[in-house]
Design a protein around this nucleic acid. Structure first.
Ligand code: FES
Ligand code: FES
Lengths: 157, 157
DNA sequence: CTTGAGTCCGACTTATTTGATCGGAGATCA
DNA sequence: TGATCTCCGATCAAATAAGTCGGACTCAAG
């Protein structure tokens, strides 16, 4: 349950790879093209292309056309959060169909719904969680995210 | 993204309804049948039945057959967590396909995978989150779950 | 004991989403 | 100019979820 799509998976891998090349290496200005990533991680080329397109459209990476072209991180790795990446590929976060109340978009159960409010809270918590972890954090195995709740007080990791 | 299935939705509603009848009301021993819930929340009858079956099979509720039959909460509402409910309906929690390493179940990207470890941590955090919230909590608008992470220190709700 | 209303339960069909693919247009550098 | 590479839309196939159907069982009243 709560599985994220493979496209989102690919997006994370690709971004991390780009970040790695751009940061850790001695070749700071190097661009990285689709093929390179696809072969490295055994990802279907065309599908990965689609993913990268979406990422660039959402301002996560910059695309450079033509020969010697490729992709570049749009901002610092510490300013790109997991939530942003995932939302670029799949829609906005929403546990239920009726999380985001559009006009007229009425859930059949809305009237007597008893789970809307608590679920929205859970959803919000998950969002904070995803939005507090950055690409940077994913690279260096840096910080752990800890949860505090009334029932699991003091439980660490 | 991260949408839970409608069946899981229905499960939460149904369980909360059962808990409400069994606890808050003056009819402590009353059983509640499928039809009652289905009509109350506009849920397809047969589908809800399926959901309830799964729940009973996983020990969340008890089923009583025959006329005047129906469902009963198997344990106290404060001992049923959201995570348990969701896992009864959908499979076990897993952000990626390769979260649970079965034998021979090798992810194509496993060798060079750079996102496995951090994602598992995120997954674990989410699980703690879901597992720290009980049916009881959902009923009375009781406790809020708070998150603490290095980057959002001090941010409350 | 018989009967029948009411329920549980598994198999089946249909709809929706996701994964993956193809072909062409536009841009850049040698 | 020409070759190479990215970008972008439309399209096809597979997986999953949503919803439906009919039979087996159980209890309680008559
Ligand atoms: S399920 Fe739509 S409002 Fe609760
Ligand atoms: S995606 Fe399977 S191991 Fe990382």
């Amino acid at each position: 349950m709560l599985k994220i799509s493979k496209k989102a998976d690919y997006a994370l891998m690709a971004l991390q790879h780009i970040a790695l090349v751009q940061f850790g290496d001695v070749t700071p200005g190097r661009v990285v093209n689709t093929k390179e990533i696809a072969e490295e991680y055994n990802i279907p080329l065309e599908l990965l292309a689609k993913v990268l397109q979406a990422l660039s459209k959402n301002g996560m990476i910059e695309s450079h056309n033509g020969p010697k072209g490729g992709y570049l991180l749009a901002r610092n790795a510490s300013h790109i959060t997991i939530a942003q990446i995932l939302e670029s590929i799949e829609g906005p976060l929403g546990l239920t169909d009726c999380s985001h109340e559009k006009d007229g978009d009425f859930c059949m159960q809305r009237e007597h719904c008893n789970i809307r409010t608590p679920l929205l809270k859970v959803q919000d918590s998950i969002y904070q969680l995803l939005n507090s972890m950055t690409l940077q954090d994913m690279m260096g195995g840096t910080p752990l995210i800890t949860i505090q709740s009334p029932s699991t007080q003091g439980v660490d990791r």
